[in-house]
Design a protein around this nucleic acid. Structure first.
Length: 677
DNA sequence: CTAGGGTTAG
């Protein structure tokens, strides 16, 4: 009751109370204390007041001999506190009530469930029977949600047996709850059995079953069920789409198309279906589609809400569309959606991915509350820019703030050390993990291999792989192979490549890496052999794609692209640039040709890597001195890196390229990575 | 007093 005692000062005079009442009440209810009746209290409580108002009201109820014993008000008070995220106070009220009935138990359980305190919810459920109360269907639905929420099959099974015992298994809501519970607990057979045996099914039943399949990576069965649902009289709704969402990440274009079809068929009045569609695009590396859809919302009379924004911001980051991102940030401010933890976290990441470190930091500094995601985003923001010392400093500050780093925070700080070549710090953090009870996983090993290998300690990196207790995966070997390419280590490079060809025989990138190693050693026969392997397997190099934003619009370029309306001018500009670059001693660097091209084509193709096209395009279309921001889906090749340095000098432009690993900030002929990448 | 949409790494 701490909250209540501290509140008594609010009621030292009747005047403050009048202010309170008149602020909530329509004017016709004269703000007199006498009017502070059960009916008035109930009206206020039903509107879910904020915590301050609620505490004042509660205090008034407690001091009123009549109201304080009113059980209906007790229920409403409990619910209101729960809605304010104060289940502890709800519990206090619950404990004070002497003549409980099953509704009090239900409200108490629901309060815990809604605040994610599933264990407490279940404990209350267990005490019911000892106090002589049988659960009803509301109890069961709620405790089923507790078991779903905590993935606790054991609890769910106990509830199911109670449901059978009390004969509630034919109830629609109970059945829906069971389907959801079994689905979340990975018991699809049981979920399906309940679903099939339900005497009556509604949309919720179908959606719950769809969600069950989708959560367990069985997208095809989820889709089949959607089709079956359409075959019956029921129509999929926004919730059906939402149920599909967990399975609609990194999926086939066919599956994305199915979800899109479903979206098109819906009456697009629900903001949720828009948000789900945006999320599906984002989760399937289709950021442009995500952004376009977001922009169409307005024209369709749908006001983007905070979830829309949080969903679309990663797409802005992916595209380096900082103008769009800023616009969305402004919109969020205008709509007073800030402060909001998830939104602020998404903003940090968006600005960081657009290379606007200062904006990211500004958002971070202005936050009222920061969680592990906020700190981790900031750490990787510095890491991506190669500012390893800043990343390490933020990590230390996070520790001082009392937050325990999690597994992802360690990945971020290790990656930051790797990009900046901070060997000792990286080793320190790797060892620090155990102090937080975190066992290194493959991603941490991959970071360590990258850190050591990039610094030239290839033997040590290989040693880590040999001694690790996990089976190394693609990323681990890939980090080693990359290092071998940088340092031309043929022996270990061959070992790593061999592993990679077994693990992911269809990934052309690793063949290209190995062929780069051969090329550097002048082993042209082996280079040719790899090329013929690629041809025989029918493997194509992933095409390089670069994005650049101009006037709120993102332009995309492919390597060798000739489809852009300004294509001719772009190539002319490139010719001029290359001419000037050669005056600075520029020589096309053929060994870093990551593209699978014939020898004689090399110089020609190098000139048209997608980032070069994007840069030339930006130079033509923006005023002198405007910074150029490009994102790319592959790593920058050595030739483009040299090229970008020179272009930054020649044109006196800042050029920021984000590749799959980090930022390269080119200024006056130098890169922020210090050529360490 | 039944479902369902959001942020961080590599």
């Amino acid at each position: 009751m701490k909250a209540i005692t501290t509140l008594s000062r609010y009621f030292s005079t009747g005047k403050q109370l009048q202010v309170l009442v008149s602020s909530i009440q329509p004017p016709k209810f004269v703000p007199q204390i006498a009017a502070f009746t059960e009916d008035l209290c109930a009206r206020i409580l039903n509107q879910y007041p904020d915590i301050k108002t609620l505490e004042k009201l509660h205090c008034k109820v407690l001091t009123d001999d009549y109201l304080r014993w009113n059980s209906s008000l007790g229920i409403k008070l409990m619910r209101a506190y729960s809605a304010c995220g104060e289940p502890g106070i709800t519990r206090h009220i619950f404990d004070e009530i002497t003549d409980k009935n099953v509704v009090f138990f239900n409200v108490m359980i629901r309060s815990y469930v809604n605040n994610h305190l599933y264990r407490d919810a279940f404990l209350v459920y267990k005490t019911m029977s000892s106090q002589g109360f049988d659960p009803d269907m509301y109890t069961c639905v709620c405790v089923l949600k507790a078991s779903s929420g905590s993935d606790s099959l054991w609890v769910g099974l106990q509830v199911h047996s109670a449901i059978l015992k009390f004969g509630m298994d034919s109830n629609l809501f109970v059945g829906n709850g069971l389907v959801a519970m079994y689905g979340k607990c990975k018991c699809l057979k049981e979920a399906r059995q309940v679903f099939d045996e339900m005497p009556r099914r509604d949309v919720v039943s179908w959606n719950s079953m769809v969600a069950g399949y989708a959560q367990n990576e069985r997208f095809n069965e989820a889709l089949d069920l959607c089709r079956e649902m359409e075959g019956s009289k029921l129509k999929p709704n926004a919730c059906t789409m939402a149920s599909l969402l967990p399975a609609a990440a990194n999926t086939s274009s066919d599956n994305v198309f199915y979800v899109k079809e479903m979206f098109m068929k819906l009456a697009k009045t629900s903001v949720i279906s828009w948000n789900v569609m945006i999320a599906v695009y984002v989760n399937n590396t289709m950021p442009k589609e995500a952004m376009d859809l977001y922009l169409q919302m307005d024209a369709n009379g749908i006001e983007p809400d905070v979830v829309s924004i949080v969903s679309v911001l990663p797409a802005c980051g992916d595209l380096s569309a900082v103008t769009q991102g800023r616009g969305i940030h402004e919109y969020a401010k205008r709509k007073k959606l800030i402060p909001n933890l998830l939104l602020e976290n998404a903003l940090i990441d968006m600005y960081a991915k657009c290379g606007c470190l200062r904006d990211a930091r500004a958002v971070f500094d202005q936050m009222q509350f920061r969680d592990i995601v906020s700190w981790t985003s900031m750490i990787s923001a510095y890491g991506m820019c190669g500012q390893g010392h800043d990343a390490v400093a933020v990590f230390a500050k996070m520790q001082n703030s009392g937050l325990s780093p999690d597994s992802i925070a360690f990945v971020s700080v290790l990656a930051a050390c790797s990009h900046a070549g901070l060997l000792d710090e990286g080793r320190y953090y790797f060892n620090l993990m155990s102090e937080y009870g975190i066992t290194p996983k493959l991603e941490h090993f991959a970071c360590m291999v990258d850190l050591l290998g990039r610094a030239g300690n290839i033997d040590e990196a290989y040693g880590i792989i040999r001694h690790m207790h996990l089976e190394p995966n693609e990323r681990v070997w890939g980090a080693l192979l990359s290092a071998c390419r940088v340092y031309s280590n043929m022996n270990i490079g061959l070992l790593a490549a061999d592993q990679l060809f077994q693990l992911v025989p269809e990934q052309s990138g690793y063949y290209v890496l190995l062929s780069n190693i051969y090329a550097k050693a002048g082993r042209w026969q082996d280079v040719a052999a790899i090329r013929s392997i690629l041809q025989r397997k029918g493997l194509k190099k992933i095409p390089g794609i670069s994005n650049v934003e101009l006037n709120d619009h993102v332009h995309t370029f492919l390597a060798g692209d000739q489809f852009h309306p300004q294509s001719k001018e772009i190539y002319e500009e490139l010719d001029v640039l290359v001419g000037k670059m050669k005056e600075f001693g520029y020589m096309p660097e053929t060994d870093s040709a990551l593209h699978d091209v014939e020898e004689e084509d090399k110089e020609c193709h190098l000139a048209v890597h997608s980032e070069k096209l994007a840069i030339a395009f930006a130079i033509i279309n923006t005023k002198p001195g405007t910074p150029i921001r490009v994102t790319k889906n592959l790593r920058v090749c050595g030739d483009c890196h040299v090229g970008a340095k020179l272009i930054s000098k020649i044109t006196k432009r800042e050029i920021v390229i984000r590749d799959t690993h980090r930022f390269h900030h080119f200024h006056d002929g130098a890169c922020s990575c210090g050529d360490y990448w």
